[in-house]
């Protein structure tokens, strides 16, 4: 199964990646190989196998509803590329 250049560009856009034409061709080839490998699984009879969402075999892992303050707030803010006082700061997203 071959992936078109347009599909590569669309995937790149969704991932916020800017690709050169060379890269589009190269990644298209790589993605096609990955899909071909996955396609080998198509030979298996899976009609009676439900889609797998989890392979752990456990369910309902939960915690009690007890609030607990995290003390390292400053470190979280410092860890961001930019901050402004108590806020995280990002590039302007509306004019």
């Amino acid at each position: 199964m071959s992936i078109s250049d347009d599909e590569v560009r669309k995937i790149a856009k969704l991932a916020r990646l800017r690709l050169s034409d060379d890269e589009v061709a190269r990644y298209g080839g790589q993605l096609t190989k990955i899909l071909d490998a996955m396609a080998e699984l198509g030979a298996l009879e899976t009609g009676n196998v439900p889609p797998t969402a989890s392979v752990l075999g456990v369910s309902d892992v939960m915690r009690r509803d007890e609030p607990r303050a995290f003390e390292g707030r400053e470190r979280l803010l410092d860890n961001a590329p930019d901050r402004d006082g108590p806020y995280f700061k990002v590039r302007k997203i509306i004019a």
């Binding site: 007890e66 607990r68 995290f70 979280l76 108590p86």
Partner: peptide, 17 residues
């Protein structure tokens, strides 16, 4: 475990990793 009572409180006062 961050508290949900952050309305009107200091920004980013209920955050964790």
């Amino acid at each position: 475990a961050c508290a949900t009572d952050g309305f009107g409180e200091a920004p980013n006062s209920r955050i964790c990793p």
